[in-house]
Design a protein around this nucleic acid. Structure first.
Lengths: 106, 106
DNA sequence: ATAAGACTTGTCAATTTTTGACAAAGTTAA
DNA sequence: TTAACTTTGTCAAAAATTGACAAGTCTTAT
């Protein structure tokens, strides 16, 4: 998926021929806010992922992966993080994993 | 730098033989909160990067890179984002950059 | 033993950010 | 034109982050 999460929702919504109002109702939110989400002016609230998966019969884990990669991609974009720096960030994530492991055993 | 940003601050502080109280004062914050930052229990507020750079005579851009990679690394860690998914995230960042470019020209 | 200094932890109010809701406006098609 | 759909602006409510203070531990010097 090479789009934003908002665009992905819009795609799903159109494929299923739902209006903003209809999908928003299913998601328990305002159609105005769903519009903003689809247009990238607001974030989709992670709490609603299970509901979204259910509505479109998607695998929740895969949907969450779409969500996570969107969020991190946004973070990379907003901080202007180069590929080189991203490798450093990945090493730091690795470091945190190790830190956590040693904490577990203690 | 393969440590957390908090650990990095602690390193700088120790190298310069400052106490938490002394450094906290220079940064205009409470020593208790600086302690939490060094121990990874709170985030360092980005607004203070210029002050931090000045105190330790560091290049602000490089310091900001340390900060950004720490933040993204934390994000990767907390979302359990695999290397494979991270590549997807990077593609999505790239997509956002292109989106932004086309918006600029319009 | 205890006093002093350095550090840590818990709590809570203040600030900041995010979210939900509503109104109003713009867009498109019949 | 109307009617349905979508977008935008605004603002209060909710959530998350931060600052500040108190009380605690730990170490070291006297």
């Amino acid at each position: 998926m090479k789009t934003t999460f908002g665009e992905y929702i819009r795609l799903l919504r159109n494929q299923n021929e739902l209006t903003l109002t209809q999908l928003a109702a299913k998601l328990n939110l305002d159609s105005a806010n769903l519009s903003k989400i689809e247009n990238g002016k607001r974030d989709f609230d992670e709490k609603r992922l299970p509901k979204l998966a259910k509505i479109f019969k998607l695998n929740l884990t895969e949907l969450r992966n779409e969500y996570v990669t969107d969020q991190i991609g946004k973070h990379i974009y907003e901080t202007n993080c180069s590929k080189q720096l991203l490798r450093v960030a990945e090493e730091k994530a690795e470091y945190r994993r190790k830190l956590n492991k040693t904490l577990q055993t203690q």
